[in-house]
Design a protein around this nucleic acid. Structure first.
Lengths: 237, 237
DNA sequence: TCATATAGTGTCGTTTAGGCACTATATTAC
DNA sequence: GTAATATAGTGCCTAAACGACACTATATGA
C-alpha cells in the first residue's frame, strides 16, 4: 500500500487515546510573596476545586504546544508571559476521573502588575500564595505539578536569573535578590549574588535609579534574547 | 448535574485529540562509541526510515507513562534499562503526516552486553553510532528528539555519573571516564574526574580488580537508590 | 631486570563563593 | 547645616573546588 492510500484510510480510523491537556504554573512576585495563578473550576470534573489554568490543544489555532499554553494563559490574564518553559508531562489512569489522561505542564513567570487589572475583574481567577496553595487540595494532580514547578523554580533561582521575569521590565538588584530569596527560602549573600549577576552579563544598567529611603538603587532590564539565562555554567535544564 | 452523571455522560463523547505517542532515546556505549537504538520502520507512515523506538499508551497495561516506555523498550531489547528519564514533549501539526501529534520522549541508558544477543537476532532493530544517526534522515522529527537527548546527556556527563548506566553493572573508573569523554567530546582531566566521583560518593568499590595490560583498576558498582546522580550541585533537569 | 603500559596520587596555582566590614548616597530628625 | 539612619554597593580575606601535570604504584612482557 502506498503512503498516500494509507493516510487516506487512516483519517477514517479513530484511536482510543488518553485525554490530552496542557496545564500552566504561572508564578509571580508580589509584596514579598511568591504567588501562583489558580482557577476555581466551574465545570465537572473537580467542580469547585482550585486548579492550575489548563485546557486542550486546539488543532486549528495552535501550531505548537507553546501556542496552546500561551492561548490558555492569555485567556486568563489577557497578556502573554515573557517566560515560558516546559516543565514535565504527567500521565496515568487515575489522575483524571474521566480515564487515562496526560497533561503537558509548563512553568511561566510574569510581573504582577502586568495582569493585575484584568485578574481583579474576574471572580474565579486569582493569585494565591504558593505556600498556601501547596497545602490546599487542588484539582486533579495539580498539587504534584505545582510542587515540581516550585522545585524547578528553586533550582533556577540558584543558578539563573529567570526569576527576574516575575518582576516588571525594570527592577533593582536588591529587588531581584529578594525574589530569589523568597523562592529559595533563605537569605543570600549580597556580594555573591551581585557577583554572579555581573559575571552572567545578562542585565543592562538603564542608567536610571530608584530610591527607597536610602541610597538609590540602579535600575536594570534584561538583555534581549540572551538565549539561556544561566549564570555561569550551561545546565539544562 | 452531579459529577457522577457527568462522568457517565462523558464516556459516550469522543474528543478530537492529537495523536499521542511515547518515544525513547536509548543510548549505550560500545567499543569507544556512543550508540543509539533505532528501528527500521516496516509500516506507514515513514515506512523504510529509521526511527526511535516508540509506541502508544496501552490504557489497559500501563499504569504510567514510564510503564509505556519500559514496555516499548522491553519489546525491542528484551530487557528493562536501569536508567530512564523523561526528556521533553514535542507536539505540532506537522511532525506526523497523520495530523496534529504529540510525543513524550524519554532518555534511557543500558549496557551494550545486556541486550546484545536479543538485538542481533532481530533484523530491523540495531544500535547505530550517534554521530552517524545525527546526520541521517530519521522518521518524523526524531532527529530533533535525538539532538535534544544528546545535549541533555552531555550535561549529565559534565555534572553526574548517569553515564555509568551505559556500562555493565561493574566497571572501572578509567572505563567510566572514557564514556564521559566520548559523550562530552573532549578529554577530561583524570584527577578532576576522580575527585568528583569520590566526593559524590555514589560508587562502591567492589574490592575486585580488572587488568588491561598495566596496573589493574578497581571495579566499582553504583550505590543502590542513590536518589539523584549529580556530583556536587543539585541541578534538575 | 628493565621497558612499557595502565592506574592512581600529591601538589601547586587559579578560580569561585561565602562572609563581613567597609564606603557611598539618599532621607529624616533636630 | 549636621548628625542619625536607612539602603546600595565595594574591598578584601579565607576556604573550597578545579585544572594541570608531575609523580608514584602495579601489572605485563621482552
Amino acid at each position: 500500500m502506498s503512503e498516500e492510500k494509507y493516510l487516506q484510510n487512516y483519517k477514517k480510523t479513530l484511536f482510543e487515546s488518553p485525554l490530552l491537556t496542557v496545564d500552566a504554573v504561572l508564578f509571580t512576585y508580589h509584596q514579598g510573596d511568591l504567588k501562583v495563578l489558580l482557577i476555581e473550576r466551574s465545570n465537572h470534573p473537580e467542580k469547585g476545586k482550585w486548579a492550575l489554568p489548563g485546557g486542550f490543544v486546539d488543532e486549528k489555532k495552535d501550531r505548537s504546544l507553546e501556542d496552546t499554553v500561551i492561548r490558555i494563559l492569555k485567556q486568563k490574564t489577557s497578556v502573554e508571559p515573557p517566560y515560558i518553559e516546559q516543565l514535565y508531562t504527567f500521565g496515568g489512569p487515575d489522575r483524571d476521573k474521566r480515564g487515562w489522561s496526560v497533561t503537558i505542564s509548563y512553568t511561566a513567570l510574569i510581573a504582577h502588575q502586568a495582569c493585575r487589572s484584568h485578574i481583579e475583574t474576574v471572580s474565579n481567577v486569582d493569585w494565591m500564595n504558593v505556600a498556601r496553595a501547596e497545602k490546599m487540595e487542588l484539582a486533579f494532580d495539580h498539587q504534584q505539578i505545582l510542587y515540581r514547578a516550585r522545585e524547578r523554580l528553586r533550582q533556577k533561582a540558584l543558578y539563573s536569573i529567570v526569576p527576574a521575569y516575575a518582576l516588571p521590565e525594570t527592577f533593582t538588584l536588591p529587588e531581584l535578590q529578594r525574589v530569589h530569596e523568597v523562592i529559595i527560602g533563605k537569605p543570600l549573600q549580597k556580594k555573591s549574588f551581585r557577583r554572579r549577576i555581573e559575571q552572567a552579563n545578562l542585565l543592562i544598567d538603564t542608567g536610571e535609579k530608584r530610591s527607597e529611603g536610602g541610597r538609590p538603587a540602579a535600575l536594570y532590564r534584561m538583555r534581549e534574547k540572551s538565549g539561556d539565562y544561566t549564570f555561569v555554567r550551561n545546565l539544562e535544564q
